[in-house]
């Protein structure tokens, strides 16, 4: 069979038991087998059943992506693995807090660009703003790139969270 060697970027959602060591298990799997992690987020989504949702953005050939999913499914505390990229349309969002320090025109320009990107100011001093911006990864990248010459000093990003479009649920 012909092996497809194109590198694809996939967003994978993993439902896991929120127990000690479960994140280490997932991360150890990626590092131990040499898979990429571009971003990873994790939080409990059901406190009654102690279930967490991990969203991991990874890249690899189609064969590697299939391996990643199969290996994840093999972990005992993993309930479900869903390849959001492969399973049709999905929405992806990331949130960033961006600190920009500056005076005068640069300050005004930063505020103007923030408005274009629909970023909100959530903290302000005479010399600084903290913007909150959410959107696709590319939009956040574009925003931080524009802010660099305007005095960007600090960025904190959440990594991607994603969910499938339409009425279907995990």
């Amino acid at each position: 069979m012909v092996v497809d060697l194109t590198i694809e970027r996939h967003t994978i959602a993993v439902l896991v038991d929120n127990e000690a060591g479960v994140l280490a298990r997932v991360i150890g799997l990626f590092s131990g087998r040499g898979y990429n992690i571009e971003s990873l987020t994790v939080a409990e989504i059901d406190s009654d059943d102690a279930i967490s949702r991990i969203t991991v953005v990874t890249s690899g050939t189609p064969q590697i992506i299939e391996q990643i999913k199969a290996q994840l499914e093999r972990l005992v505390p993993v309930h479900r693995v869903i390849d959001l990229t492969a399973d049709g349309a999905n929405v992806e969002r990331e949130l960033a807090l961006v600190k920009v320090v500056g005076k005068g025109n640069k300050r005004v320009e930063a505020l103007r660009i923030a408005d274009i990107f629909r970023a909100r100011v959530i903290d302000s001093t005479n010399e600084s703003f903290v913007f909150e911006i959410s959107g696709a990864t590319e939009k956040l990248n574009a925003f931080t790139d524009l802010m660099v010459p305007l005095g960007l000093v600090d960025v904190s990003r959440t990594g991607v969270v994603a969910i499938a479009r339409g009425k279907s649920a995990l």
Binding site: M1, V3, Q63, E66, Q67, A70, Q71, E73, R74
Partner: peptide, 19 residues
């Protein structure tokens, strides 16, 4: 052509792609 029977899905298409 290759048929692969295994209880572990992660063993399938790991080294050799099967039909």
């Amino acid at each position: 052509k290759k048929i692969h029977i295994d209880i572990d899905p992660s063993s399938i298409n790991k080294n050799v792609m099967v039909d």
